[in-house]
Each structure stands twice: as C-alpha cells, then as structure tokens.
C-alpha cells in the first residue's frame, strides 16, 4: 500500500467542534474505496482535510510514501490528488473549455496538456459538444462531468469525489458511475463519498462507514452491502 493514500489518527475541528475524531483509512493505488455515512458524519470534512483545505488538528496523511498533511492544497494537487467537490462547483462564468484548462493549473508547466485534454474529451464526449458554453448554463449532469473532467486535467493518481450523483436523474447517475469505472480503468484510484450506498458499494473494492466523526465499520464492498446494520441504517430494511 506504499503507493496509495494512508490517513492515520486524523482529527479535524470545524467551527470549534471536532468534526473528525481520529479516523484512519487507506486507499490503495488503483482501488475504488467508498466512504459512507449519514448527513454531518464528516465525509466532506475527510476529503477537505486530505486536500489540505481543512487543516488537520492531529494525525497524519501520507500519499505515495510522502507526508502531505500540511503541504497545502496546491501542493496536494501537485502530489497527484484531485478533488471533485460537493455540488460540482464549476466556475459558472467560464466556458467548459476554460474550466478544463484551469484544472491543469498545478501541472501547467509540464508537457502533455493538449493530449490529456483530448483524452478527457474522449472519456466525457458530452463536454466536447459543450466546450464553448458557459459552465453555469450546463445541466446538473453535464456540470458534474465538467467538474470530473476539470479534476482529471491535473493528471491525478487519485480522485476524491464528493457525492457525484447527488441530485441527478437515474440515467445520468448511470453515466456518472460508468465514468468512475472508466477512471479506475485508467489506473486512477478513487475515494468516493456517496449517498447512493448500493451503487457505491457495488463499484467499490472496499468501504468505510463514518458516524459522528469516527469510523464505525469497514470492509469489502460486498461484505458491507450484506451487513445487516449497514442495510438497516442506509437502506431502511434488514438483509433479506
């Protein structure tokens, strides 16, 4: 697991309260890992802490054998971790193309930008059709695709995704999950926060369940999917 992400004993305070109370998790390179939990459990906070946006109070974060706990958001992107934020957060008054370009900020001095742009437009063909459109006028699904494309422009080895299927129609949700599979196919690891527990655990190798800022359960995707307590809590019914 030297290649992947290791979080150990992470504590984060937000607005004085302890949003994370010492969590440890790992994501191997090329692995898709789901991070589940009720509203307010600390999922977004975990991703923000990894990205360096919410400073770690205690604990350590390592990526690819290197400590990244306090290096700051710009350096985290540079180290190979890109973040698709909750609610997509594209820049509304920039075109889709400008959004994508700017996603490569951290690696703008390296070569291969044009080639990567082509690859991403092949992976997300919808963006190619909308290249010149202002991102603020995209549909919810297209906006999510633009946010994913923007993150991929940084040539990450790991993607943090915060509820990418939120508010999308079932057909568009399918597209999002197909895209996540394709991203894994490219050798990019994914730490996936999802409300859509079944879909997330179907795609994920492993998963963690957060509750009140602590990890209360972890296991293989199938294993968690069959876990009676997980089913009770997130699907509202016991395992059949």
């Amino acid at each position: 697991m030297k290649d992947g992400l290791q979080v150990s004993g992470l504590e984060v305070r937000r607005g004085g309260a302890r949003a994370l109370r010492g969590i440890s998790l790992a994501v191997g390179s090329r692995e898709v890992v789901a991070l589940l939990g009720a509203n307010g459990a600390g999922k977004t906070t975990t991703l923000r802490a990894i990205s360096g946006l919410s400073p770690a109070w205690r604990g350590e974060i390592h990526f690819a054998g290197r400590e990244i706990t306090r290096i700051g958001p710009a350096a985290v992107v540079g180290a190979g971790i890109a973040h698709v934020p909750e609610g997509s957060r594209v820049w509304p008054e920039m075109t889709v193309m400008e959004n994508l370009r700017l996603g490569a900020w951290a690696v703008r001095r390296k070569s291969g930008l044009t080639r990567r742009l082509d690859e991403i437009l092949t992976l997300l063909p919808r963006l190619a059709e909308r290249a010149g459109q202002l991102a603020g006028t995209l549909s919810g699904g297209e906006r999510q695709m633009a946010a994913i494309g923007r993150a991929l422009m940084a040539a990450p080895r790991m993607l943090l995704m915060d509820e990418p299927s939120l508010g999308l129609s079932p057909r568009v949700v399918d597209t999002v999950f197909d895209t996540i599979r394709a991203i894994r196919g490219e050798g990019v690891a994914v730490l996936l926060v999802e409300q859509n527990v079944v879909r997330a655990l179907e795609i994920a190798e492993r998963g963690y369940v957060l509750e009140g800022g602590r990890i209360v359960r972890e296991g293989g995707g199938r294993e968690l999917l069959e876990d009676p307590e997980v089913r009770q809590a997130y699907l509202g019914r016991a395992a059949g």
Binding site: A75, R89, W91, L102, W105, A154
Partner: peptide, 23 residues
C-alpha cells in the same frame, strides 16, 4: 493567460480555485 484565468476563477468560486491548486 494562466494568471488571468486564475483571477477569474478566484472571483467566481474561491473554494473551487483552491481545490484546483490555485494559490
């Protein structure tokens, strides 16, 4: 220019700019 795009990004959504590694 990169600087100009970064400026507009920070104006439109500062948090997203920070996430993309823009200082």
């Amino acid at each position: 220019t990169w600087a100009g795009l970064a400026l507009r990004a920070v104006a439109q959504d500062r948090g997203a700019a920070a996430l993309s590694g823009i200082p």
